[in-house]
Amino acid sequence: MAERSEEVKLLGMWASPFSRRVEIALTLKGVPYEFSEQDITNKSPLLLQSNPVHKMIPVLLHNGKPISESLVILEYIDDTWQNNPILPQDPYDRATARFWARFVDEQVYVTAMKVVGKVGEEKDAAVEATRDLLKLLEKELVGKDFLGGESLGFVDIVATLVAFWLMRTEEVVGVKVVPVEMFPEIHRWVKNLLDVDVIKKCIPPEDEHLDYIRARMESLKLKSV
């Protein structure tokens, strides 16, 4: 259990799925923390000093010691504050959870990002490739309330990227990447997530988030011209 004297600070950005997943874990554990909003276009000296390798958020500062990369941070949080565990205790189940978490970040996220900024056949191909990957998550959810089983867990926290970033981006890109008729289990899972108080507290407000996504996409279009 964490002691009150511990200093926990999160260098993050309000609209980042990687930053928000760390907030979910800290909130679930009941860990008090200070949130330091970072400008990712004008990186602070503290961020550059704390994460000199990638120079990216999120970074967790625990008693002044920096931990970078969101998946690493989640495991660190789970190891440090052992109440309300987010990773399974069984070694096989832990390995499986790590596998699916990396699948979300290294395959689903990377592929879905190709939908943004593409047009015509290239966009259609990126949508289909993303759906092919999501079909694997859809299958994994059959018979489960959460990707972690009966309750919110490590993979669910990581996959909020799908629920509240990818699925919101649909409104902006004008393509239903995750249509309910194709992915009923994923949509059921999203509803289950929204019944969890910690999730409702830690996801970005939808209207403000959509405005940010639109502005971000417009900025990317201008840079590509």
Rank of each mutant, 00 (worst) to 15 (best):
R131K: 08
K123T: 00
L166H: 04
W100Y: 13
V178H: 04
G174H: 12
V53S: 10
P52R: 03
F164A: 07
V119R: 01
F154M: 12
M56P: 00
L74I: 08
P45D: 04
I186E: 14
P184R: 08
M13F: 15
G117T: 00
V196N: 12
L26D: 09
D124R: 15
M113Q: 09
K221H: 05
A95Y: 14
N192G: 13
L194H: 09
E208V: 11
F154T: 06
F99M: 15
P66H: 13
L136P: 03
I24M: 13
K114C: 03
S5T: 07
K200Q: 15
K135G: 01
M13P: 00
I24T: 05
P85Q: 07
R4E: 14
W189L: 12
V190H: 09
K29E: 11
L47Q: 12
L10Q: 01
Q49H: 10
E23M: 12
K135T: 02
L152I: 07
R216Y: 10
G30N: 06
G148E: 07
L87C: 14
L161I: 12
V116I: 13
S70T: 12
Y76M: 08
S151W: 09
N63W: 01
V31Y: 08
P88A: 10
G143W: 09
L161N: 03
N51T: 12
A129I: 03
E75M: 10
P184E: 14
L134D: 07
K139C: 14
E121D: 03
C202P: 02
V115F: 01
S19Q: 04
F146D: 00
D39P: 04
R102Y: 05
E208Q: 15
A163P: 01
L10G: 04
F18Y: 15
M113H: 03
L61V: 00
E181P: 03
T169A: 14
R131Q: 15
E128Q: 12
W81F: 15
L166W: 06
W81L: 07
I40E: 02
L46N: 00
V108Q: 05
L134E: 10
V8L: 06
L60C: 08
A159H: 08
R216N: 10
I24E: 04
K123N: 00
E150H: 11
Q49E: 15
W14Q: 06
A112S: 06
V172D: 10
D197H: 09
F146T: 13
P45Q: 06
D90T: 07
V31C: 12
D105R: 11
S44I: 10
L136I: 15
P32K: 05
G149R: 03
Y212I: 08
P179D: 14
W81P: 04
N63Q: 01
V177Q: 03
L134K: 12
N192W: 02
L193W: 04
K65Q: 08
A95E: 06
N51R: 14
A101D: 10
P184C: 13
L193Y: 00
I77G: 00
N192H: 14
Q49C: 07
L152F: 05
M167H: 12
A125H: 00
E34V: 10
S44N: 07
K65G: 01
Q38E: 15
H62Y: 13
I203P: 01
G120D: 00
Q89E: 13
S36W: 02
A163K: 02
P179R: 13
A129D: 05
L47P: 02
D90F: 07
M182V: 06
